[in-house]
Measured scan of single mutants.
Amino acid sequence: EPLWIRPDAPSRCTWQLGRPASESPHHHTAPAKSPKILPDILKKIGDTPMVRINKIGKKFGLKCELLAKCEFFNAGGSVKDRISLRMIEDAERDGTLKPGDTIIEPTSGNTGIGLALAAAVRGYRCIIVMPEKMSSEKVDVLRALGAEIVRTPTNARFDSPESHVGVAWRLKNEIPNSHILDQYRNASNPLAHYDTTADEILQQCDGKLDMLVASVGTGGTITGIARKLKEKCPGCRIIGVDPEGSILAEPEELNQTEQTTYEVEGIGYDFIPTVLDRTVVDKWFKSNDEEAFTFARMLIAQEGLLCGGSAGSTVAVAVKAAQELQEGQRCVVILPDSVRNYMTKFLSDRWMLQKGFLKEEDLTEKKPWWWHLRVQELGLSAPLTVLPTITCGHTIEILREKGFDQAPVVDEAGVILGMVTLGNMLSSLLAGKVQPSDQVGKVIYKQFKQIRLTDTLGRLSHILEMDHFALVVHEQIQYHSTGKSSQRQMVFGVVTAIDLLNFVAAQERDQK
């Protein structure tokens, strides 16, 4: 057995438009009618409502009807409940999964919650491996369901041993009777949507819809739904939504950006999952974080739909894509998950301010006199920076000697690579993860907040409520011999709460 199987392995699926269902090699399930009293909570997966979006479509000038398939009504709160249950049931049916076995899954959280929910009911041990950027709410729900959680670096490539995929496979090879159901490759993922989600949409719309818009992560949702719609409703256009920084969209030119990270969760990847059939997507749109969270908040405030950030991405694209539809036509959007997962993220004004998705003037509360002053007023001194090749031991000596707790790590040209902190280095040394002679590049981390000289002290204040420091950066445009230009970030300084307090105190003292 291989040590790991690539999540982007070539698909062996034989589905073709027009091929009889009787030739399918898979076990198919028909939607079942729910009894009045459910035998367990797993029976509350599927049969989610279709809700008309009344205000947002009109606000953006849509002539067509805009409908939302509300997947956050599933038992675990997301569309991923469907595939989690289906993968477990299919693994039980073919004898792969037996009582007492362990389920391991690399996930952005929602599939993990679905699997942990099913594992709690069915009696399996469950280990979820997820990147650090995923919300604390997801972690809390997983723990409450009895799952064990392993976190991995957000910026690790999918084929790196440190990625959530790599760590999951390492655990599988170490733990007896453990299984990775593997949402990236498992046919049960798109089949769950082909058999149930798509049929529900067709039934709820009486077979009449002209466009379907869905955000894409593993691709199982859009693949399964689109294949069924292509068979039953061939005139329906399928629109895929991919965040900026991901590479799922086609044509490839759409993916060209210097951005590699994004805040919206559960969609987009740096590889093409095996289950994603991009041939059934008629057109791709890219979405960005700001519009995703703005539209998610709009869905909550104006439509009462308590959905997550990827739902915002989907609707932001839908109001663009559906401009081509006329009166009497219908566009369906998939709202994948609930706001429950993001209470401390985009639902929080403070978080939105820190990330730059909300401006101070958007909030009406009274601010102190210094709130709208610029960061450049602080008069920061030149920063202490270190090269990635310097040793951890030497870096600790320098920081202690100069009285700093942290320093930016830059390359020879001064471009920011990340940050090192005294606390992080000492804990890594004590844990045996690094040696004093190791290069400081081994303990770089990139989960820090950046701020510009033109940003306000109010925004800085919000950042420092949650973080010990902020890195002050400025952009530099560099022209190359080819005539092309590129933008790079340079370090201007490091600012802490002490710097802000000293500035405010000094100004008030001078005024007296």
Rank of each mutant, 00 (worst) to 15 (best):
G308L: 02
T274C: 05
W369A: 15
L464I: 12
V410C: 12
Q435V: 11
Q329R: 14
H468K: 10
V410K: 02
L500R: 02
T496R: 02
L299I: 15
P368T: 06
I463P: 15
G393S: 13
Q406P: 02
E291C: 13
R459E: 07
W369S: 04
A296C: 06
V472A: 12
E303Y: 06
V494D: 02
Q439S: 08
R340D: 07
D362L: 10
E508C: 11
Q354A: 02
I247V: 12
M298K: 14
G308V: 02
C392D: 09
V504K: 14
G432C: 05
D282K: 14
L306K: 02
L387E: 14
Y262V: 06
F492T: 15
N288M: 02
A506F: 12
K442T: 14
C331D: 02
P436H: 13
T257L: 10
R297Q: 06
K449C: 15
G414Q: 15
Y262M: 02
V264F: 02
I444A: 12
A292R: 07
K283G: 05
E252F: 06
L353C: 09
S428V: 12
T257E: 02
A321W: 02
E252T: 13
A301S: 06
D455S: 14
G393F: 13
L353E: 11
K355C: 04
C331Y: 05
D438V: 12
V333W: 02
I239L: 04
T421G: 02
K446D: 08
V440K: 06
V375G: 04
Q329N: 07
Y445M: 05
P436V: 13
T279Y: 12
Q406E: 09
V410S: 10
G312V: 02
L471C: 15
M490P: 14
G493M: 02
R488V: 14
G493P: 11
T344M: 05
T364D: 02
Q354L: 12
R509M: 13
T456K: 13
F492W: 12
R297L: 07
K512F: 09
Q450Y: 02
E263I: 05
I416Q: 02
E253N: 14
K446A: 02
I416P: 02
T294K: 02
R374Q: 02
T389Y: 10
R297I: 07
Y262H: 07
I463S: 09
E361N: 15
V280L: 14
S287G: 10
V440A: 08
G483Q: 11
A318S: 14
N424F: 15
N424T: 02
V375N: 15
Q489V: 13
Q487C: 11
P336G: 02
K283P: 07
G458R: 14
L460V: 14
G308K: 02
H480Y: 11
R297M: 04
W370L: 13
E291S: 14
M466K: 12
V504G: 12
L464Y: 08
E324I: 13
F271T: 02
L335H: 02
F404R: 04
I451C: 02
H462N: 05
L417C: 15
A382V: 13
Q439W: 14
L353P: 02
V415P: 02
L347I: 12
K449I: 07
A407L: 14
I247K: 10
P368Y: 15
E250S: 04
V409H: 02
K355Y: 09
L384C: 07
M490F: 12
F448Y: 12
L373Y: 13
P243M: 09
E291V: 12
D277N: 09
V443S: 15
M298S: 04
K442P: 12
I416E: 02
M343A: 05
W284Q: 02
H474L: 08
M343P: 02
G266I: 05
A296L: 04
K366Q: 15
L363C: 14
L254D: 07
L417M: 12
E377V: 15
S428F: 11
E252I: 02
E475G: 15
A413Y: 11
A470L: 12
A301K: 02
G483R: 13
L457W: 02
D499F: 02
D499W: 02
V410Q: 14
M352L: 09
V440H: 08
T496V: 06
L306W: 02
L471Y: 12
L464G: 09
V473N: 14
T395E: 02
G356I: 11
L384P: 02
N288C: 11
L417S: 12
T456R: 09
Q487F: 13
L373M: 08
L299F: 02
Q478S: 13
G309S: 07
K484Y: 12
I390A: 02
V280G: 12
Q489M: 13
S486P: 04
A506G: 13
G418K: 08
V332H: 05
A311G: 02
S485E: 14
M490Q: 13
A407V: 13
H480W: 07
N341H: 02
S338E: 09
N288I: 13
K345W: 02
S287K: 13
E401V: 13
E303R: 02
L353Y: 14
Q376C: 14
S486G: 10
S287F: 08
V280I: 05
V275I: 06
I272C: 08
Q302Y: 07
T314N: 02
G483E: 13
L453F: 13
L380V: 12
N255C: 07
V420W: 02
R340C: 02
S310I: 13
L501Y: 12
V434E: 14
T454C: 12
D411K: 14
S381L: 13
Q507V: 09
T294Y: 13
L500A: 13
F295H: 02
E250M: 08
I396V: 11
I239W: 06
L417Y: 10
R350G: 11
G304S: 02
A316M: 05
K484F: 13
Y262C: 05
P436E: 13
A470W: 02
G240Y: 02
L373A: 14
T257D: 09
V473Y: 10
Q447N: 12
G240H: 02
E265T: 05
T454Q: 10
F448V: 12
T257M: 10
E290G: 14
D289K: 04
Q487E: 10
K512G: 15
E361L: 09
P436F: 11
I272P: 02
L453S: 05
Y445Q: 02
K355Q: 09
L335Q: 13
Y445E: 02
R488F: 14
Q439M: 06
G240L: 07
F503N: 02
M352E: 02
A413K: 14
T279A: 11
V472D: 02
P336L: 04
K484A: 02
A321H: 13
I416A: 02
K283L: 09
I390S: 10
G493F: 14
P383Q: 12
P408Y: 02
L378P: 08
E475L: 12
V409G: 09
F346M: 07
S313K: 06
G328Y: 06
A470I: 02
S437E: 12
D438K: 15
N341V: 02
V495L: 09
F295W: 12
I272V: 09
I300L: 04
T385C: 02
Y479L: 13
I477Y: 15
G356V: 04
H474A: 06
A296S: 07
N255W: 07
G393Y: 05
D270E: 09
I267A: 07
G403W: 15
V410W: 08
V409R: 02
G432P: 06
L501P: 06
E290Y: 11
T261A: 02
Q302T: 15
V264A: 04
I390E: 06
N424W: 15
D510K: 11
Y269D: 02
H474I: 07
D349L: 09
E291G: 02
D411Q: 02
P408I: 02
A301P: 04
A413I: 09
Q326F: 08
L363N: 07
K320M: 11
Q478G: 13
K320F: 09
Q487Y: 09
E377K: 15
I247C: 02
Q439G: 09
K320S: 11
T456F: 12
R330Y: 11
S485W: 12
H394Y: 12
A296I: 02
I444W: 12
Y269E: 08
L325C: 11
I416V: 12
